[in-house]
């Protein structure tokens, strides 16, 4: 579904990603871990098309298409969903109206007519239930006055509504208490299927207890320095990142 080849990117002329290679197939969950500043969130931003990131080398193929050639909204319509680390507040724009618009755009992109009000409402109710999202919040302004946990749950609710092919969860676990974490994870697990894929970016192994990944990658200094299965996450939990840093440094000097 997604193939990242030798991806280099910079922000404000500073190299952030220094050659990422990653392949994600439908039905897979990939976890990307790494210490602060290793480039995890940058990778998410580059995939979603945030403008201040310049791709300097490499390519990203999504469903056979060149992802990097697309506008952020086109990427979204093609099925790339970013659950933001810091969801923005937009006063005066109601959550529901915003979702209705987004869904209609995505459907139009697929050549489908917009859902009528009744269908939309029905879908919205189902998905709210699925991800345990408070109906009250649905009718408020987008993220305005939401707590940190509410904002993250709203991200997952949107994920449920928009049914993307590839979901990138950027530190969705940060700032969540254990109950919220459980609810968010449960939502994600229910949404997992053979047709979609997830990239879960996290600093801690904690989230991976709830959402079990098929693959774990460690990002350090803009490169994936180690890949493995879910056991790698446990190893990291135990040993920290330092041993990998050493590893990476050695590799760098020998090259």
């Amino acid at each position: 579904m997604l193939t990242i080849k030798n991806l280099h990117a910079e922000v404000e002329e500073k190299q952030i990603l220094k050659g990422i290679n990653l392949s994600v197939n439908a039905g897979e969950v990939h976890a990307i871990m790494g210490p602060n500043g290793s480039g995890k969130s940058s990778l998410a931003s580059v995939l979603a098309g945030r403008e201040n990131y310049q791709v300097t080398q490499g390519e990203v193929i999504f469903k056979g298409l060149n992802l990097l050639d697309m506008n952020p909204e086109v990427r979204a319509r093609e099925g790339v969903f970013l659950a933001f680390q810091y969801p923005i507040e937009i006063p005066g724009v109601s959550n529901i109206n915003f979702l209705k618009t987004a869904l209609a755009e995505i459907r139009a992109h697929k050549g489908l007519p917009p859902l009528d009000a009744k269908e939309f409402l029905k879908m919205s109710r189902e998905k709210q239930k699925l991800v345990e999202f408070d109906a009250q919040l649905v009718n408020r302004s987008l993220n305005e006055g939401f707590s940190g946990g509410e904002k993250k749950r709203n991200e997952i609710f949107q994920l449920a509504m928009l049914e993307p092919a590839l979901s990138i969860l950027d530190e969705t676990d940060s700032g969540l208490d254990i109950d919220a974490l459980r609810i968010v994870s449960k939502g994600v697990n229910k949404l997992r299927s053979e047709n979609n894929a997830f990239i879960i970016i996290t600093h801690y192994q904690r989230l991976l207890e709830y959402i079990v990944p098929d693959f774990v990658h460690v990002l350090y200094d803009g490169r994936i320095v180690k890949s493995g299965t879910k056991e790698l996450a446990l190893e990291l939990e135990e040993k920290g990142y330092d041993w990998l840093k050493e590893d990476a440094r050695e590799k760098a000097t020998t090259i």
Binding site: A48, E73, A76, I88, I90, F98, T101, A102, E105, L162
Partner: peptide, 17 residues
């Protein structure tokens, strides 16, 4: 950008905002 990421083009995003 947030609205773009949800598939809403910039024109509509501005209108919404």
């Amino acid at each position: 950008f947030y609205l773009n990421q949800r598939g809403i083009d910039s024109e509509k995003a501005v209108a919404l905002i």
